[in-house]
Design a protein around this nucleic acid. Structure first.
Lengths: 338, 338
DNA sequence: GATCCTAGCTAATGCGCATTAGCGCGGGGC
DNA sequence: GCCCCGCGCTAATGCGCATTAGCTAGGATC
């Protein structure tokens, strides 16, 4: 690196000289450390403040961080590109919430874009990561790397995951969506309409979000029936073969595809079959159909994650919480056909 | 601020101890300063690198910035929310380009979310800004604050604006879209189809992007005719009253609205009137119409801005450049009616 | 008059790193 | 046998700030 540019930038020493006090005093005034041990008379304080005002001085955040160990910078690590297109805008609302709360708290966001993509995946702990530049970090993504999580926990680095995560060598702080409850409610409404045979269309395992949805389902029907997702035609086959009267689609897009195919085959939704969706589309799924299901409180999750993170940074203890999903009345659930 | 947390974090001193060398040596190895004055034999270097590898040590970017004046962090300041919804996704492509290039260059992005919104506007230089935490900064937004710009220039802070900007007490580095050329080409194509009377629907002043579009228009027709935008019905009135055969819509959304209203009044586009758009929608404007016009090279602009910024940070000189827009063949331009 | 406060400051230190000056040592030249 | 030189490293310094340990005046106390 070249020698530090002769940046003609003001330092506390400059301010001190101008105000006729010591650098220490400037620092004290700046941080309102007037209480306790140090007492600075209003006159001196005002003089310093005036100089600061006039010169437009601002403390160097890097130096501040170095000396004080904090810098009000929150990291955001996304396991998918931050500004995605492939995932539609699934992550967008999370980011909006994160940004909102950060602004409110006077924090800046550091996007860890320098994380190189290896094998199509990003890793927090890559060669020369810069985690420590931020006070803490919000993790975002469908599937977080278990090793990353374990190391974060082990190193006691302050972080909060958006989305529930299983333990990883320790408790993982998260703000998740309460899928079990949401799915449970959906099943209850479905059964209340007379549906006896309700299937779950999806993997039901893999990412925690799938597992949780399936758990909510399995725990609220007497005989769980899981159908694998796949090509639209295949899914339709499986559903029809199963002889069920309602289907819960783990992935919104699968629900859309299924409904499409069924429609073309003359099977009416919800006339012949009810189709419910378990969350928002994670991939583009254009449709005119208004699905019954629930919405993930994405924005709120983002907000809460930042909130929990700042707590954590300030010495709080890790928190795990699930936020309720919102039931959305649509047009794809109807009483079972006689 | 609380006393520095007893962060059990590795420092170069730790590494040095473990490797049996001095902190200086670690730093030299880390920065590949093997050349020139300092020569470190491969053996020593390997030993140090091994320890770094094993411990997962990373240099503290804040300290780095302080000591060297660089930290490979680029700021992004947006005059609208970074993750917007009101502006549709107009800014999205810029951000994609910025992110791409940053990743490529191994830089992290610092979003200046801490800038509070005052009177509905954000300012770079607010109370306690954190500009200096980054090596430089990309500015994004329809209208940048002139005072901000002037001060950035005056303080010699490395920055690049996305979008052309007028001088502000000095040259403002930017990566803009070549609106004059793009609009000029559009006019030429329109006139080549026999249109004699081509109007410009828009303000033609205010933000540089409007001014530039209008300039491109005014310089390529014999008698410029500007029509104010407004409510859809009003715009239709004005256009019809003007007796023109083609209209250039400064704002995409206005083009959409105009076409809509005309259609409902039985005026066919492009049968009776051609309507061209001058760029991409800056606000949501759903339509099925495929407009003839041009596209702003947003992604490329983002990329280029980051590229220019890194140059600048590394001591290069400010650059101003305009990127060509891409003509888009649509269905709203037709030969003039006889 | 000597001692002890206390108010109002300041000198000194260290955060983790990059960088500059320079130290010790072995070998070659004379 | 002495000097010099260059190799391989290290001690020391400072970046801008926060913080701790004082230091100095002036008044109160005895």
């Amino acid at each position: 690196m070249p020698p530090p540019v002769p940046s003609r930038r003001l330092t506390q020493r400059d301010i001190a000289r101008l105000a006729g006090v010591s650098q220490t005093t400037v620092s004290l005034v700046l941080n309102n450390r007037a209480d306790a041990e140090s007492r600075i008379p209003a006159e001196t304080r005002d003089r310093v403040l005036r100089v600061i005002q006039e010169t437009g001085y601002v403390a160097d955040p890097a130096a501040r961080r170095l000396a004080a160990g904090r810098n009000r910078i929150l990291g955001v690590f996304t396991y998918e590109p931050v500004f995605p297109s492939a995932t539609g805008d699934f992550f967008h609302p999370f980011l909006i919430g994160i940004e909102e709360c950060a602004e409110q708290r006077g924090c800046d966001l550091l996007l860890f874009t320098s994380a190189p993509t290896v094998d199509g995946r990003k890793r927090v702990y890559h060669q020369d990561h810069r985690l420590r530049l931020a006070d803490g970090c919000v993790l975002l993504g469908r599937e977080l790397d278990r090793e990353d999580l374990a190391r974060l926990v082990a190193e006691d680095y302050p972080f909060v995951s958006v989305g529930r995560r299983d333990d990883a060598g320790g408790t993982v702080p998260y703000v998740g969506a309460d899928y079990p409850a949401a799915v449970g409610e959906l099943v209850a409404r479905t059964r209340a309409m007379g549906h006896e045979r309700v299937a779950y269309l999806g993997h039901g395992r893999g990412p925690e979000s799938y597992v949780d949805r399936y758990r909510g389902y399995a725990e609220s029907v007497p005989e769980p029936l899981r159908l694998d997702p796949g090509e639209p035609a295949e899914m339709a086959e499986r559903v029809l073969a199963a002889g069920v009267t309602a289907v819960l689609a783990e992935e919104y897009a699968d629900g859309v595809a299924l409904t499409d195919v069924l429609g073309r085959r003359g099977v009416s939704v919800p006339g012949d079959l009810s189709v419910l969706t378990l969350g928002d589309p994670t991939r583009p799924a254009p449709t005119d159909v208004d699905f019954t299901g629930f919405r993930i409180p994405r924005r709120e999750m983002g907000r809460q994650a930042v909130e929990d993170l700042t707590e954590l940074v300030e010495g709080g203890s890790p928190v795990q919480r699930l936020l309720p999903c919102e039931y959305t009345e649509g047009a794809t659930l109807a009483p079972v056909r006689r």
